[in-house]
């Protein structure tokens, strides 16, 4: 995508000169205790938290989302999927807000088909927290069906309010369970995920 990528090991402590940090999915420390609970204390996380607090764009995908929640950069927590199954399939998500660098070149209500792959993606927040998320337009993506409707069946893991992706109040930190990086190339199946990265690059005027 014409953007230079630098891989940072979790023991590194230098995040200078970066336009954006992506915390990828996978598993960290065996996900013992709770997903992301131990990774949240990796050496690089202190620097990442400082970077995010200064307004630096940080995107957490899947396990990355769980780590950002545990670090308190975005509100809420993750529970085991409602039906206890590990879910690995393509899902439909709906763009709920375009007021963020991650969605500014998308359309409101646009549907994206992006894979999920997780066992603990059942997002939880209490009612007051949810109201705050809604009032500040922090919900970027919701799980919907192929017609863009929030039916109970479409809420694959039981998340509060169908939440698939949210930002912090300042909107520089995004956490999302679906994997946009696994939907980047039409030849390999689909490319809806690419639109999110294109949006960021455009907003940050990198590409």
């Amino acid at each position: 995508m014409n953007a230079e990528v630098k891989f940072l090991w979790h023991k590194e402590t230098d995040v200078s000169g970066l336009d954006m940090i992506i915390v990828p999915g996978g598993f960290s420390y065996g996900d013992y205790l709770r997903s992301g609970a131990i990774a949240r204390f990796s050496p690089i996380m202190q620097e990442l938290i400082g970077y995010a607090q200064k307004g630096g764009p940080v995107m957490g995908i899947c396990n990355g989302f769980q780590i950002l929640l545990e670090a308190g950069l975005i509100p809420g927590a993750m529970r085991h999927n409602e039906q206890l199954k590990f879910i690995c399939k393509d899902v439909h998500i709906r763009v709920e807000s375009t007021q963020s660098i991650y969605t500014s070149s998308l359309q409101k209500d646009q549907l994206l088909t992006i894979p999920v792959s997780h066992g603990e993606g059942n997002y939880y927040i209490d009612n007051d927290g949810l109201k705050e998320l809604q009032d500040s337009d922090q919900v970027l993506f919701r799980y919907v069906n192929a017609h863009g409707e929030t039916t109970p069946e479409a809420n694959i893991n039981g998340s509060v309010d169908h939440i698939a992706g949210i930002t912090n109040k300042q909107k520089n930190v995004l956490g999302m369970m679906p994997h946009p990086e696994r939907a980047m190339e039409r030849l390999l199946g689909k490319e809806d995920g690419k639109h999110i990265f294109e949006s960021v690059l455009q907003a940050l005027a990198i590409a």
Binding site: A37, G76, A77, Y124, I125
Partner: peptide, 8 residues
């Protein structure tokens, strides 16, 4: 700090 997540 670690063993419990007081959000839930």
């Amino acid at each position: 700090k670690l063993l419990a997540n007081e959000v839930m």
